[in-house]
Amino acid sequence: MTKIMDGKVVLVTGAGGGIGRDIALAAAAAGAAVVVNDLGASLKGTGQTELAAQKVVDEITAAGGSAVANADSVADPDAAREMVDLAVREFGRIDAVVNNAGILRDGFFHKMTYEDFDAVVKVHLYGAFNTSRAAADHFRTQESGALVHMTSTSGLIGNLAQANYAAAKLAITAFSKSVALDMKRWNVRSNCIAPFAWSRMISSIKVDTPEQEARVEKLKQMTPAKVAPMAVYLASDRAADVTGQIFAVRNNEIFLVNQPRPIRSVHSGDGWTPEAIANHAIPALKADFMPLEVSADVFSWDPV
């Protein structure tokens, strides 16, 4: 029986564990040859071992699939290009890139260092650019390709002590939309997933209150394997008409996430003064202000 990813070659970054590992395993099980990338670093991006990626490759090959390991950093554009080149050398082509690699350096904004902001943005946002740009030339030549980027409700909605991570993750959605527009003429698609899954990436969430502790316990019920099918679908030809979208996957639920659009306006024929804005514009608009919420306020019900 034909599988949904037969004949395809996929690069999955940050695939040594967590969500990335399950996506790599699921892609291989669906028929794809997989480049398994993982720096093998700590959650903060320090230290390195090549074992993480190779262990996943061993799992794939033991199950009868095809895979090769890569232990480079997505934050390095030359290394990102090597990941794509490795796919082409080993398997003859590249059909999809899943940008999953990431690090966390959480901290309240007034305590956050430049280095911690820079490091997180480099891995998440620059990493997505580096691998996507490396694949773009191949995609254009073959007039097909798929990019799947991991965003987060920390960026889409908000979260405490994650200004660096939230900034990078929301930026990825704008990046994805722009790539989808630019690459449409070559049948190249770009979409985002905001995953809900208990993994190393979110195990460092600050737990300062009983409410936060309860939320973490709910998150632990959601396994990375629940996210993988959506990523594999978006990387496949079955998603040929799906591009520029943001999805969230939460246990057995799939959400389509809205994107910023004007929701209300006010007009003054004579233009606005600061006083007129204070007296008329803001009172008229205020009923539609977005509340200062965190992700748990919006996704407040138990996972199903």
Rank of each mutant, 00 (worst) to 15 (best):
M1I: 09
T2Y: 06
K3S: 14
K3P: 00
I4C: 09
I4S: 10
M5W: 04
D6W: 07
G7A: 05
K8Q: 11
A15T: 08
I19D: 03
I19W: 01
I19L: 10
G20Q: 01
R21A: 11
R21F: 00
A24P: 02
L25A: 07
A26V: 06
A26F: 06
A28V: 08
A29E: 11
A30L: 00
V34S: 01
V35W: 05
N37K: 05
D38N: 11
D38V: 09
L39M: 10
A41I: 06
S42D: 11
G45V: 03
T49I: 04
L51E: 14
L51N: 12
A52C: 09
Q54C: 07
I60S: 04
T61E: 13
G64R: 03
G65K: 00
D72P: 00
D76R: 02
P77E: 09
D78R: 08
A79C: 09
A79N: 03
A79F: 02
D85C: 08
A87F: 00
A87C: 13
E90R: 09
F91V: 05
I94N: 07
D95F: 02
I103R: 06
L104P: 01
M112S: 15
F117W: 12
D118V: 03
D118H: 14
V121D: 10
V123H: 02
H124I: 01
H124W: 04
Y126Q: 14
Y126L: 15
Y126H: 12
G127D: 03
A128C: 15
T131M: 04
E143F: 01
E143R: 15
A146V: 06
M150E: 11
M150K: 08
T151C: 10
S154R: 01
L156C: 09
Q162D: 08
A163P: 10
Y165Q: 14
A171K: 07
A171N: 07
T173A: 04
A174G: 15
D182R: 08
M183H: 13
M183W: 14
M183Q: 14
K184I: 08
K184C: 10
V188Q: 02
R189V: 07
N191Q: 11
N191V: 02
F196N: 12
F196H: 13
S199C: 07
R200H: 12
V207H: 12
D208L: 11
T209Q: 04
E211G: 11
E213P: 06
E213C: 02
A214H: 05
E217Y: 04
E217W: 02
L219V: 06
M222H: 09
M230E: 10
M230C: 08
Y233P: 12
L234V: 06
I246G: 03
A248L: 01
R250V: 01
N251K: 13
F255W: 15
L256N: 11
R261Q: 14
V266G: 05
V266T: 12
H267C: 10
H267D: 11
G269K: 03
W272N: 11
H280Q: 15
A281N: 07
I282D: 08
I282Q: 10
A284N: 11
F289H: 13
E293R: 15
A296M: 09
V298T: 15
V304H: 13
